[in-house]
Amino acid sequence: MTDSTGTAGENVSPTQRLSEAGVAIWLDDLSRQRLRSGNLAELVATKNVVGVTTNPTIFAAALAQGDAYDGSLRELAGSDVEAAVERITTDDVRDAADVLRPVYDATSGVDGRVSIEVDPRLARDTAATATMAVRLWETIDRPNVMIKIPATVEGLPAITSTLAKGISVNVTLIFSIERYRAVMDAFLAGLEQAKEAGHDLSAIGSVASFFVSRVDAEVDKRLTAIGTDEALALRGQAAIANARLAYAAYSEVFSGERWKALEAAGAKPQRPLWASTGVKDPSYRDTMYVDELVVAGVVNTMPEKTLDAFADHGIVLADTVTGTAEEATATIQALEAVGVSMNEVTAQLEQEGVSKFEVSWDELLTTTKTGLDEAKAGER
């Protein structure tokens, strides 16, 4: 018999072995159908899922499929469409938080978290982002919720002010090491302010969602356009290298004196979260953004397809991140040498990320309006 390491021994599932390696598995998906069917609870029980992330794209897809939302649409018929969207999405997140509450309690608030994003149209508006973050937190009213705030320049002070109020935050759409360092600074500042305000730091959770596969998708496109042997040989390497350098930055910041003072006051670290871990190039191993980013104390949020693939044939041999910074730096330098600017890539990806979520938000509004109109007309 072989286990998930490929060696003889106890038959341990790949997801269990990943959890034992210190990687928290979160599901990057949520729908009312998943909640009603018991599927989310099943994934917690059978595939080591200990958290959930959502975004406008996920909710737009959920609303467009099936009839699970018909009852809510009938109840909300005649309502303002934006108010209806907020009601529907916060109801789902509250219910998911209740499913995951035992995990939250068992891990002293480290996991068992469910994330919901502020309206992406506010990504360049600090004050509006901060205001909506508070409203979502108060509306859902569950301690194991995280409010997702994008890591735009304008989002950074909103991250700090939200944390300062004792609200848990998932910082999303991080692509560059430079921006990630700014995010960690915003986190530390927020906790320092929360401490001054008398909040219980041990109750505040935070993750920093560092996007992975989108980096390879854009870099590979540029490498293919360059077309030299040197360029083509670098395909599929940028995203892993970038994420490993992010972990090196995390290790540096969270071993510093500023963090130690907060830790002594009960604070939990802002864990790196590997986001966008579904493989976009079918020629790549379908679990590569999980296998290659194994290190204790991080989160990997997976779409269900990636979770299923990893549960079936994922391999956890060892820590694949610690001590890789030098090699990762060499990879980034090689990319720059053939003509790929990582600064240009990450700036483009941030803008595209915000735009894609805005499009999904518009789709969510449109789908909801159609449903409300049909409910009002008695067609649902």
Rank of each mutant, 00 (worst) to 15 (best):
S276E: 00
Q33C: 11
T172L: 02
A347C: 00
T366Q: 11
T152I: 10
A337Y: 06
I58E: 12
L163S: 06
I332P: 09
S283L: 13
G166E: 00
A233N: 04
D312G: 09
S355H: 14
V212N: 11
E196P: 08
I25K: 04
E178L: 12
V321H: 05
E350H: 07
A246L: 03
F175Y: 14
K260W: 03
L30F: 04
S206H: 05
S37G: 13
K260Y: 01
R285W: 01
T57H: 09
T53I: 08
I149Y: 05
N55M: 09
A208S: 13
S79P: 04
A318R: 15
A164C: 09
S72M: 13
I58F: 04
P102Y: 00
S341I: 02
Y69Q: 06
G112T: 10
T15K: 13
T346C: 03
A337Q: 02
T107A: 04
P102Q: 02
K356T: 14
T131E: 13
I332D: 05
E374D: 15
L307D: 11
E230Q: 15
S283A: 15
L76I: 09
Y250C: 07
W26Y: 11
V49T: 00
A261W: 00
W361I: 11
E154P: 08
N170H: 02
N242Y: 10
D91R: 11
